[in-house]
Design a protein around this nucleic acid. Structure first.
Lengths: 127, 127
DNA sequence: TTTGATGCAAATCATTTGCATGGGT
DNA sequence: ACCCATGCAAATGATTTGCATCAAA
């Protein structure tokens, strides 16, 4: 039961398409971007490679509505989500503080990570 | 353009089915529960009434994977999500503190709410 | 050569929607 | 009576999957 990983052209192209993204693209947006380089890659392959990258912890998934958005794992950050335009902004709130509520550990729960999302109106929508 | 609200039997039955739930049921689970009382209610109606309750801020939606879970709005609380069994636990972390990072207001962003989720292993899965 | 990865299309799953009819007001 | 809400079924949208073939190793 060993995990084999082949370095395919399509895996590389998908990774190249997301690794510097700050716009939290969807699988479909990544698909469109990748098609510029590799016109007949299939959407299924994009999905499979995104999953693989998530499994390798190189990407994080965030679900908005029922659509997944992919976010390269850089430094730990949180999100501000505009309730009007639905844009997602990366923000840094107490980024290095771990949240480990004592009542949880007392009850035998192990906290490994957390995700904070703030909601409101972004600058362009507020004015 | 006024919001009309009719008090239908099905709206009441759906609300009764969720209002005291602490198990974060899905639309389908609510549908099944409601069918005990009203066997030929339709799934579409359950969805429509859940939306309505969300619009009235009586329910909150949380998406896990690609499925929505409904949570009656009681006191502000956060969530612990077990990464093994996917159960959702309500927790209370600094429940009355508002998070309003100064750098956001400085940039003209208006924060109205936030949501914190902790991830890890729950008691039963950890041992 | 071996066998994991791909492209394609069909399948799945949650949710939404169009439409004729029913039931609050 | 008016017209919003319902039941039903078909439609939608995102994601997954089966399978024959391709291409890393």
């Amino acid at each position: 039961m060993k995990e084999t990983r082949r370095h395919t052209r399509q895996l590389k192209v998908v990774w190249d398409a997301v690794k510097d993204e700050t716009s939290h693209p969807t699988a479909d947006q990544i698909y469109e971007k990748v098609r510029a380089t590799m016109p007949n890659i299939s959407l299924g392959t994009v999905y499979r490679n995104l999953q693989k990258l998530v499994g390798e912890k190189k990407l994080k998934v965030m679900t908005l509505g029922r659509t997944q958005h992919f976010d390269p794992m850089v430094d730990r950050h949180d999100h501000f989500i505009c309730e009007r335009c639905n844009r997602v902004y990366d923000i840094f709130v107490n980024s290095r503080k771990k949240i480990r509520p004592p009542f949880l550990s007392r009850r035998g729960f192990k906290v490994t990570s957390h995700q904070l999302a703030l909601y409101g109106l972004c600058k362009s929508c507020a004015e």
